[in-house]
């Protein structure tokens, strides 16, 4: 089950940071349009999931558990934003 791996894909993480930063940049640009910002939050999350899964697909280590993990963490992020907008700002 457990495999030793020291492979740190620096390029992948740099690309991921770039994608997430780009998402944040566009969310700032969309301010104060909350609807557009919410769409951008969803798009950024979608990119994070797709990019992560594509990376695992290329590395030939993509399986259903990995897919579920990315989807659940992505969903957690989106529901956190929902909680803040709905409960905090009252949108």
């Amino acid at each position: 089950m457990y495999i030793k791996s020291n492979n740190i894909d620096l390029e992948y993480y740099i690309s991921l940071i770039f994608i997430l930063s780009l998402g944040l940049f566009f969310i700032i640009l969309a301010s104060p349009n909350k609807n557009l910002q919410l769409i951008l939050v969803l798009l950024t999350t979608l990119f994070y999931i797709v990019f992560g899964l594509a990376h695992h697909l290329i590395n030939h280590d993509l399986n259903i558990k990995v897919v579920v993990q990315y989807v659940i963490i992505g969903a957690l992020g989106v529901t956190v934003i929902f909680f803040f907008l709905k409960g905090g700002l009252g949108l």
């Binding site: 993480y13 998402g23 969310i27 993990q69 992020g77």
Partner: peptide, 22 residues
């Protein structure tokens, strides 16, 4: 193995909260 991805994503969620709330 995937944790750094999730850490980066969750940090960006925290930043999104800051942006949305200001």
């Amino acid at each position: 193995e995937h944790n750094p991805d999730h850490i980066l994503f969750l940090i960006s969620v925290l930043l999104m909260i800051v942006i949305l709330g200001r």
